[in-house]
Every structure is written in C-alpha cells, then in structure tokens.
Design a binder for these strands. Structure first.
Lengths: 246, 246
DNA sequence: GTAATAGTGTCTATGAGACAATATCGT
DNA sequence: ACGATATTGTCTCATAGACACTATTAC
C-alpha cells in the first residue's frame, strides 16, 4: 500500500477507478472414493458473464456485510455449501484486466476441506444450481467460467503437494475415524496406494490423533476410533510420505 | 466470483461500493550476515494515513498501467527497489474494513528475494525515503503502518518454513556462488548452524546446482563456484533439513 | 611451516518401504 | 473354521547428523 500510486492526481486522492473485488472458494470433499469439487452454475441473466457455465462458488465482497476477506469466504461457504468448514486456507489471489469482461478485477481465493457428511441439499441457499464434480471430469473438454479452471488446478496442486507432508486429509473425515479411513483419504487425494505399516507409525508417532474409548464395529475385527488431538492446527511432518522419484 | 452478491440491486449491477485494491511487496536480502527487509517511509501529506511511519513498499493497483497483480508487484519492485527480483512469490492477501482508515481495502502481498549485490541507491525512484531493517529491530517497540507488521511476520514465517525443504536461499546470492556461501545463506535465514557434510551431500545430490569452470580465490584453499541448474524453479527436498524437536 | 577454508569419509540414528505374521471380530 | 480387516513385527534402505580427517591455497 503506502503512497497513492500513479492514478490521477486529483484533489481527492481516492478518486480513481477501482478494480472489482471478489472472493471465491474451492470446496473439496471426498465422495465415492473420489476427490470432488463443488461448482455453481452461472446465471443466465443479461449482463452476467459466462452464462450457463460452471464456476467456483463466490462473489463480490460486500463492504457493508463483510468484516474481512476470510469472513467473506466463510459467508460464501455457508451460503453455497451450507457448512462451517473444518479447514479453510487462503490459496492466493488472481487479478488483472482481462479475467472478467466487466472490468479490472481481483479475486481472493480460499480453499476448504469438508467431510462428505456435511454435504448439502445440493441447492445453495439462493437456489443457484450447484453440483459436485470429480476432478476427472475436467480433462480438457469442459470449460469453467472466468479463469476458474486455472484456479481450481492451482488448488488441486496445492492440496496434492500438502498431502505429502501434512495432516490435511484428516479434515475430509468426520470427527471420529479409524486409521484405515484416514489412510483411505490420503490415498484418494494422492491417487496412489500407501503402505499400511509405515502409515500407522507415521500417524501414531506424530501425535496427530488420540484414541477415543470407542471402536468401529463391523463384520470383522473392530477398529480403534481416533480423533484429532488438535483440530485447529494441521500437523506438518518432516518427511514426505514417499520419496519422490522425479 | 459468480453472481452479484448482496450489494444494492440497482439496474446497473456493478453500481455498488468497491474496496480499495493494492499490492505490497516484502523484499528480503541478506546483508552483513543478517536477514533484512526493505521499508519505505509514509509521506507526511494531509490525508495520508500513518504519516512518518515505516511501511512495506506498495501502493494502489493502477487499472490503466497494471496488466495483472503480478505485473503490478514487479512494477513496485522496480520503482522502490530498482530490481528485477530473481524470486517472487505470492504470499497472500489481507483485506477488511478496518485495516486502512480510508475505507474497506484489500492488499495482495508478494514476497521477493534478492541478492544484496542488487541493492539500491537507497532512495526509491520517487524519492520516497527507503531503508533496510534487520528483523531484530521489530521486537515489540517499533510499529509499522497499517497491518504491515503482521504481514511482515507472515512473510518471515513463510520464508523460515520453506528454507527447511526448498532451495530458496539460493536466490539471496549472485549467479555464481560457492557451497559455503550457500550454506551461510541457509544459516542466516534459519538462525542456526547446519552441518557442512550433510549440507553438501544434500545440495549436490539434489541437482540444485551445477559447477562452473571457475574457482573462488582467497587467502586459503580455492572453492568451486556453482550456479543454479534451473534458476526458474526452486528445488523441493523430500526431507526437512533438520528433524524438528517440537 | 601456520592459518584458514574447502572438501571427504565414517559411523550412528531415524523413519520410510516392503512384506510377513498375528489378532479379533461376524458368520 | 472362514473371511475380512486391524494391528504388529522384521528387515532393508536412504539420508540426516555428528565428528574427524584430508586437501589446497596465501603467507
């Protein structure tokens, strides 16, 4: 920030054109053993760009209602997905002259992980059409509105990178879960199997989880249920889960 | 982005108040074996917030001159530090009602690493007062304008985290450097000594650097000079440099 | 020779990866 | 007992960390 930039040196220093400011959210959940993203359909109303195309849930910052960018993101999350996400992190921002036909715009993008249990009645509060898409559905053909394809890819990349050395997949599960279920979340996100024994040692010795006095019953040996020891702070491991063979 | 938010449902859908949009840059360099940050002094002119306080270099996005956020950041970098940074990454964005007395504002923050050789004639192009500060100078007492203290801390945290598993410190050096010099950069950023032998193995086996047919001469045994094998892409290691003892 | 820094080697500890063995449930 | 999944154990390998040793320059 600092001093006024180059804009017209009028008497009123704030009297120069301002970019549009928005917030978008990339919401991930795992359903049917697949990583999925929530998208909403662009309205057909006149003046609306990219009518009928799928887009990330989001919208303009409302200077009267939104205290901050993150508060705005949480509002979008509530409105579009009807959830309080257990994990929300800022992904980055995208801005420029050409990304929105309505003019110079900048969007602040957040990415959220939610347990599929929290998944919504499929319609956002404002009745906008919303749907979950697996990542495979974007191989080339389908287009998204604005630069949302690029943003979504960035979000997936970030998630896939972080999975290698953090506990993020835990936020895709309900409060209580077994180690096998946690392992499955890792495998879905990484799209490759991981070794059971090593995984258990890694998780248990990290202090990531603590056992609850309950078992998951089934048609086989019951499994110990765990919950996050510190649900607020993800764990960062000092090694990636598998030596990369770049 | 997507549909217009809650703002006044006028005929013209874009006719609602827009936040101020800016870009700030946290510029790091190592000088005198210390990690330092470039700051500029806020002007004393009437209407300018935080007059006389130190702030991150930055300013409003100029919708006529700036193609994109990153282009805007590079412009600030040129104007305030007079450099093309060999490393520039987006740090995040900060936005809300209260961070700037002039109204709802959002800043897009980048962080840059530059070799101290590139360091400037001390005055920005626009004659604004600029100076380098060591991080120690911010222990409590000194205040920065806006939320720039918080932003700077976030930048330092990001850098310190990434040093553990990336080659970022290489961008604090000139094109050609010795392994000892590289190690010194790591040590300055991490604020702890690291082991020579392990460091050399790590660096050499990673393909991070390649030798040039030159040596650094001195009052002792000459050292092999290296340069980055791929100056564009930082290397990501699969292990942190030292097991954290949290 | 000495001082100073560059560069190598050796040994240990940690934790990942592969794979096998054992445990405990419902039926 | 059988099927299925949970849980543990054993062995190997890669690499970080500690520390010592050797190498090459200027003086």
């Amino acid at each position: 920030m600092a001093k006024t930039g180059k804009p017209p040196a009028t008497q009123d220093k704030l009297d120069f054109p301002r970019p549009l400011t928005m917030v978008d959210v990339v919401i991930f959940a795992v359903m049917e053993s697949r990583l999925q993203v929530l998208l909403v359909k662009r309205p057909d109303a006149p003046g609306e760009p990219y009518p009928g195309l799928w887009a990330l849930p989001g919208g303009f910052v409302d200077v009267d209602r939104d205290e901050s960018l993150e508060a705005c993101a949480r509002r979008k999350l509530r409105e579009k997905a009807g959830v309080e996400a257990p994990y929300l992190e800022q992904l980055g921002s995208w801005g420029g002259v050409s990304r929105d036909p309505r003019g110079w715009s900048a969007t602040h993008v957040y990415f959220a992980l939610i347990p599929s249990e929290h998944v919504m009645p499929q319609k956002g509060a404002n009745a906008a059409e919303a749907a979950w898409f697996t990542l495979q559905e974007f191989d080339g053909r389908s287009r998204l509105a604005f630069d949302h394809m690029e943003i979504m890819q960035a979000a997936v990349t970030r998630l896939r990178n972080k999975v290698e050395y953090t506990s993020l997949p835990a936020y895709l599960l309900p409060e209580e879960f077994t180690l096998s279920e946690l392992q499955r979340m890792y495998e879905v996100v990484m799209e490759r199997p991981i070794e059971k024994s090593a995984f258990r040692t890694r998780v248990l010795s990290s202090g990531l989880v603590e056992p609850v006095r309950k078992m998951r019953e089934g048609p086989n040996r019951p499994a110990q249920l765990y919950r996050l020891a510190d649900p607020v702070h993800p764990v960062v491991f000092t090694r990636t889960i598998k030596t990369r063979t770049d």
